[in-house]
Design a protein around this nucleic acid. Sequence first.
DNA 1: CTGAAAGCGCTAACAC
DNA 2: GTGTTAGCGCTTTCAG
Lengths: 333, 333
Amino acid sequence: MSERIAPTLDDVARAAGVSRATASRVINGVVPVSRPAADAVRKAVTMLGYRPNVAARALVTRRVGAVVVLVPETEDRVFSDPFFPRAYHGALEAFHHTGIHVLLSMSHPQDGVGPMLAFFLSDATDGAIVISHHGQDFARSVAASSRPVVFVGNPGVPGLAYVDVDHVHSAATATRHLLSRGATVIGTVTGPMDMTAGVERLRGFRQAMAQAGRSGHLVAEGDFTFAGGEAAAFDLLSHHPQIDALFVASDLMASGAIRAAERLGRRVPDDLLLVGFDDSLIATQCIPQLTTMENRPDVLARTAGQMLLEKLNGREPESPVILPSGLIIRESA
Amino acid sequence: MSERIAPTLDDVARAAGVSRATASRVINGVVPVSRPAADAVRKAVTMLGYRPNVAARALVTRRVGAVVVLVPETEDRVFSDPFFPRAYHGALEAFHHTGIHVLLSMSHPQDGVGPMLAFFLSDATDGAIVISHHGQDFARSVAASSRPVVFVGNPGVPGLAYVDVDHVHSAATATRHLLSRGATVIGTVTGPMDMTAGVERLRGFRQAMAQAGRSGHLVAEGDFTFAGGEAAAFDLLSHHPQIDALFVASDLMASGAIRAAERLGRRVPDDLLLVGFDDSLIATQCIPQLTTMENRPDVLARTAGQMLLEKLNGREPESPVILPSGLIIRESA
DNA sequence: CTGAAAGCGCTAACAC
DNA sequence: GTGTTAGCGCTTTCAG
C-alpha cells in the first residue's frame, strides 16, 4: 500500500477535457490560457494528486530543479568540522526562494569519490557547488560535466569558476602578527599539501617570514583535523623546543596544537603564541580563545551559490571572486 | 569552457558501428553481445567520455540510482545534534556497494518542508529514508509518493514502514533505574509532543511511575536541543526544588539539564540523579558522564536503508522493526 | 547475437 | 487560446 502508480499529464488533460499541451501550460504557468481551461486543469491536478515527473521534464528542459553540494570528504569529517555546516548553510541561502532544492552529498569512507562523481556526471542535478576537494583530479572530472560547477576554494585548474579567500595574503598577515608580538622562532602547522588552502597558507607564511628576514623552515603538515593538528604541533614543538610561536592553518588544528602544547608543559600564550585560521566556533570555545584569520564558509558558499545561479541562467559570473579576510585578535597571540 | 554538450548513446553507437540497442546492452551489461561489438562500444564510450543520462534512463526504467535521506529539520539542528551524523552514516552503510547514491536533504529555516517534499514527490530519487519528522502531515505527504519510503521512528500513520526502539519500554527502564537508586521525587524533561519519541518516552516514564505507585506529573516539555533541555530543566527544578531525580528524554537535553542544575547550585549526581537517552557522544563528554538508554541512530538508519533496499527490489520488508535498547550506567545516576 | 521500432512523460514549436 | 506533432535519450520487446 505504499507506492501507488502516479497519474500522468495525460490523465490530467483527459480529466480536464483539454489537450496535454494546455495542461502543461497551466501547470508551468505559461501565459496564454483561458480561465475555464486553467481552472479545469487545476481541479484535475488536485483531484488526481498529480505531480510532474522530473525525469520526463528534465529530458526536454534539461532542468531538474535541484543542485548538489558535493563534499568529497567522508561523512565523519563533514560532521566534525564546523566549516561544512556553515558552508552548507550559505549554499542554502543562495537558493532560497529560487525553487531549486539544495542536496548534500558526501562520500563513504571506503568508496572514495567515484560514486559521487558518477552521480553528478549522470546529470541528476542542475549543477554543483564543490567544497573541500583534494588534488586536481576531482575538480577536472567534475568540470567535465555538462552541468555548471562552482568551486569553494581554488580548484587549481584554469578556467573553472571559484570563490576563495586570499590564503597567501591572510597567512602572511597572521604571521606578521606573530612577528609583531615579538615571536623569535616561528613554526607552522599546515593543511594537507594536496589542497590549495594548505599550500597557499604555507606560501603566505614563508613569504612573511622571508620579508622579515627569517627562515620559514619549521613546518609540519597537518590534515585540518584536531588529531592531525595535535600530532603535527607535538612533533614540531618536541623537536624544536625553541619555537615560541606557531601559525596553524586552521582553528580545529590550532585547538589540537593547544593540547599538544599542554602535553609538553607549555602554556598558550605565555610560552607559545598561536594564530589559527577560519574564525570558526571553536576559536572562541578554546582556552585560551584563538587569535585567527576570518574565513566565512557561509559567505564563501553563498557566493558560490549565486555564481552557480548565474550560470544556470545562462550568464557567466566573474571568477574568481576573492573574499576579504581580516585578523581577529583574541587571547592566543 | 565549463559546460560541454554531452555525447548521447547514439553518438556512441555510431562511433562503434553498432545499433543503439547494442550499445545500450553492453553499457548495461545485458548478457548476449559479441566480444568485438562490446569492445568497440567500450572504446567509443571512453573515447567520447560518454555518461548515460539518468533522466532519459529513469523515464523508462523508473530508476535514478539515488535515494535521499530526508531530514525535515533545519540544517543547524542537523549539524548540532550528534544523532544525525550517526544516522546518515548508517544509511550510507546500507547502500554501500549497491551502486545507489545516498543524498542528504534538510530544510531551510524559512522555507519549511515544502520544497523538500516537492523535491521528493517529483520522483527525483528512487526512495527515501525519513528521519526526525514532526507530526503526521509530513509522513502522510511523503508516503503519498510513488516511491518507497522507510521511516526512522514511528510515523504514527498506519501502514508505513519504520524502524524504532521501544520508547515506552526504554523510558520505563530509565525511570525504574532512578527509582532503584532511591529517588523520591522524579521529574521528566520530554521531547517535543509532536514527535512520537517525545510522547512515548513520556508514556514510559508515567507507566513506570504509576507501577511504583508514584505520580508522574512533574513534566516539562523540551525540544531535543541543549538550550531547550536547559530551559525545561531549569523551570522544573526551580518550581519544584524537591525534585531529586530527572529522566531527560535525550542526552543533549540532559547536558543542558546539568547546566541548569549548576545554575541552581545543585550537583549531579549528589543532589540530583539524571538519566538521559540516546547514549550519544556527549553522554561521555559531560561532567558527570551520563547514565543513559542505548539508542543507535546508525543501526536504526542502516536497518531502514536495508528495508528500503528490499522495497526497491520489489520485496516487502517486515515492519515495524523494533531495536533493543539497554540501560547504560555511568556517573549521573 | 543484433537491429528496428515503440514508447517512458513531458515540453515546445507550429499550425489552426 | 488551443490542439497536433515532434522529439528529449534511453531501454526493451520483437523479429530476424
